[in-house]
Design a protein around this nucleic acid. Structure first.
Lengths: 186, 186
DNA sequence: GATAAAGTATACCGTTCTGTATACGTAAGA
DNA sequence: TCTTACGTATACAGAACGGTATACTTTATC
């Protein structure tokens, strides 16, 4: 019991600090300190910094996908509406005070050429999102659901970058509009 | 003369290593060593690591924009064709053996909450790209050139992320297709 | 050819990094 | 109650970090 509570605290703080400062910009000491835990304990639980990052990414992917599935299944909507709802979810994310970009994108950029395991994990998360979108595009009876799913994801990923680029939250409106247009044409 | 040659060598190597390993993942020692220069010289030229990063970003933005303007002005094309050509340029970039993502996106992700100056510089580069796209969308006589430019950039930025995510280079085809469709509808 | 700038080699400073060792407290189950 | 497992506090090892100092050598210019 205590075990899982400490564990969760470490994961939460690690996730927060990694998002704020990046992976290589965050020391294990800081994570341990802010989690109210000694380094010794942290290393008992996760083995290494890389092990901790793996755990953080896994937890993040799980909660992200759960969140998506919940929100998409919540109300009775058409597939098209569900796809457009994704952009609303992103809008909420961007409006959150602590928005600092996507942790998987951070992973891809920090570890691409030095830690393949982490890189693959981040790629896996992005792929999972695509599969989720694909489920929806298939339901729209679009002629090319795979390409449509790719295009929706392109807009979503792009919106993360531009939201980070000082473009206001309004960038998501342009993305949503584009998605609507693509859905119409498919 | 020698001065500028050393200077260029440092900038090139720093750019390459930052792209490969990230900013915080690359030490000044390595940059100096691989540039055939002592740390002393590097610090004489750029003052600090942050100064070097600033110079790298500035040089990168300059050469990127020059490259774009050259390629877009090369042949006689319609504005729509020029916009679609941007996706071909990105395809070339992705196919390059050393593609490791966008250095400005790396900057946004590594320095968002600890070095505002670098963050602003990266935002500036993304904004410059948008302005370049906007010039083209205005020429298409689209009803909403600003939103259209945003949408084109969304697709371009998204394609960088998905190209890094193990999705093949083919992702750029989906992006280009989407752009064509948006241009048609505008 | 003298002079002054700029480069080199090398060593160092203080800090921070990941990761470990030692020694002590605490909780719970047999 | 005793043991086992897990936590703490603290200190340290060894390396890498950004940045600087000293002393020697090259290079360009007047």
């Amino acid at each position: 019991m205590k075990n899982t509570k400490k564990n969760a605290a470490i994961l939460e703080n690690a996730n927060r600090l990694f998002e704020l400062q990046g992976f290589k910009g965050t020391g294990v000491d800081q994570i341990a300190a802010e989690s109210g835990v000694t380094k010794r304990t942290l290393y008992k639980h996760f083995g290494s910094k890389e092990g901790l990052i793996r755990a953080v990414l896994e937890a993040h992917e799980t909660s992200m996908m759960e969140r998506f599935r919940q929100d998409l299944a919540a109300s009775r909507m058409t597939a098209k509406e569900r796809i457009l709802l994704c952009f609303d979810l992103y809008r909420d994310w961007f409006e959150h005070t602590n928005f600092t970009g996507c942790i998987f994108i951070k992973t891809l950029n920090e570890f691409a050429n030095c830690t393949p395991a982490l890189n693959q994990q981040a790629q896996g998360a992005k792929w999972a999102l695509r599969e989720l979108i694909l489920e929806q595009t298939k339901s729209t009876r679009a002629t090319e659901p795979e390409q449509l799913a790719d295009q929706i994801q392109l807009l979503l990923e792009g919106s993360i970058i531009l939201a980070q680029s000082g473009r206001g939250v309004t960038i998501i409106d342009a993305a949503q509009e584009a998605a609507a247009q693509l859905l119409e044409g498919a």
